[in-house]
């Protein structure tokens, strides 16, 4: 279940942050290292809120610095 949520989250990240998931994402990877603009991260947050029911907003989403932060966010609800 947890793995499924992570996989789904990774897919959302790949879609909204335009990542090529040839190599699996690691928890310690910085979101800023992908070079995505803030509006793309906010799009990801909207999708995460819709898909996982996690309450989010723009400021909270921009405060999540690493892949691990995002994964931690969706795990309790998964």
């Amino acid at each position: 279940m947890k793995a499924g949520a992570t996989t789904q989250l990774d897919q959302l990240m790949a879609r909204y942050l335009r990542l090529d998931l040839v190599v699996p994402l690691r928890d310690d990877q910085e979101i800023s290292s992908f070079g995505a603009a803030n509006w793309r991260i906010i799009d990801l947050a909207i999708a995460v809120e819709t898909e996982f029911g996690v309450p989010l907003d723009a400021d909270k989403a921009l405060a999540l610095k690493t892949i691990g932060d995002w994964r931690a966010l969706v795990r309790p609800s998964a």
Binding site: N38, I42, D57, A58, D59, L62
Partner: peptide, 9 residues
Amino acid sequence: PPKTPWTPT
């Protein structure tokens, strides 16, 4: 316009 939850501060 007034902010929404999706407007970054």
